[in-house]
Simulated assay, not measured.
Amino acid sequence: MTASTGAPAPALVDLGPLAQLRAGRLGRRLPQLVVGLVLYGVSLALMVRGAIGLAPWDVLHSGLIRHVPITLGQAVVLMSFVVLLLWIPLREQPGIGTIANALLVGFSADATLALLDAPDVLAARVALMVGGVVLCGLASGLYIGAQLGRGPRDGLMTGLARRTGLSIRLVRTALEVVVVLVGLTLGGVLGLGTVVYALAIGPLTQVFLPLFLVPIKVDNGVDTTAPVGGGSS
């Protein structure tokens, strides 16, 4: 219960695509989703220009573009759809936000990289890295709070956790270790920023998500509240 009004706090729920549309407040939820995903792509680009290490999945993306003639944003989009194929045996349900995530984050990252030059001064690079991590936490709170479906990588994590019976934390850690190792093998960028991201993104998302979590209508009998968290796309 909230201290000020006595009303129940909004819950993060797990709904199928049609139920997401029927849940109401689309006039807020859809724009919030788009803004969150665009800012997520911006945050990725900030860390790239900081050049002090990338988020775990972006270590993989940065390694991939060393061998395939595509941009970083295109690598994000490509890997998003590859990961979505892994949803099929896990029987995960994609939502509007899942497809939007797969497309918008990569496009936003490329647009930001085209506009933003890499600074030479170390202090500026550190500021870009820290700003990118904080902005990623904010963006995660926005897009997850819109309650329109998990991103491809989050869905892979939750699907594996459900099918294996392992904890979300363990599955996420294992996934990120694997993608970092593969990314390093391909020549991806690992550094201090990777460690800062890994330590900070969970707490930052926990701070921002309650601020942007949109209360929605859920059909009677549905009780699918999910733990507040996130940080991967």
Rank of each mutant, 00 (worst) to 15 (best):
L39G: 11
V34A: 15
G53E: 03
M79Q: 15
A45G: 05
L44N: 12
V48L: 04
F81G: 14
V59Q: 07
I52L: 11
G36W: 11
V77N: 07
Y40F: 15
L72I: 08
R49F: 01
A51N: 08
G41K: 14
L54W: 00
V68A: 11
A75D: 05
L64S: 07
S62C: 12
V34G: 10
G73L: 06
V68Q: 06
R66Q: 13
A45K: 05
L78C: 14
G41R: 11
T71S: 14
L60G: 12
V59P: 05
V68P: 09
V38D: 05
H67E: 09
W57S: 10
L60M: 10
G63H: 11
S62H: 12
I52S: 01
L46V: 04
V38F: 10
V59W: 01
S80Y: 11
G50P: 01
L60Q: 09
G53M: 06
V48D: 02
V42G: 07
V42E: 07
V34W: 07
Q74D: 02
L78P: 11
M47W: 00
G63M: 07
A51L: 01
H61F: 07
A51E: 09
A51W: 01
A75S: 15
G50I: 00
G41E: 09
Q74G: 05
I65Q: 02
G63Y: 10
G36K: 15
L60A: 13
P69L: 06
L54I: 00
G50V: 00
L37Y: 06
M79W: 09
R66T: 09
V42H: 11
M47A: 03
L54K: 01
L37P: 15
I65P: 01
V77M: 13
S43A: 15
P56F: 02
L64K: 03
L44T: 12
G50H: 00
H61D: 07
L64P: 03
G53W: 04
V42W: 13
A75W: 08
L72W: 02
A75P: 03
S80I: 14
S80R: 15
D58M: 08
H61C: 07
V59R: 04
A55E: 06
L39H: 08
H61V: 07
L46E: 02
L39M: 14
V76A: 14
A51P: 00
H67A: 08
L54Y: 00
A55N: 04
L39D: 10
L46C: 05
G41H: 10
G36S: 15
H67Y: 01
M79I: 15
V48W: 01
G36Y: 10
V77P: 05
L60I: 04
V34Q: 08
D58N: 11
H61E: 07
S62R: 07
L46K: 02
L54G: 02
D58A: 06
A55P: 01
Q74N: 04
V68T: 12
A75V: 06
H61G: 09
S80E: 14
Q74T: 05
I52H: 02
V77D: 02
R49P: 03
M79F: 14
L60R: 06
T71G: 12
H67L: 10
L37Q: 13
V42T: 10
A45L: 04
W57N: 07
I65K: 00
L54F: 00
L64D: 03
P56N: 03
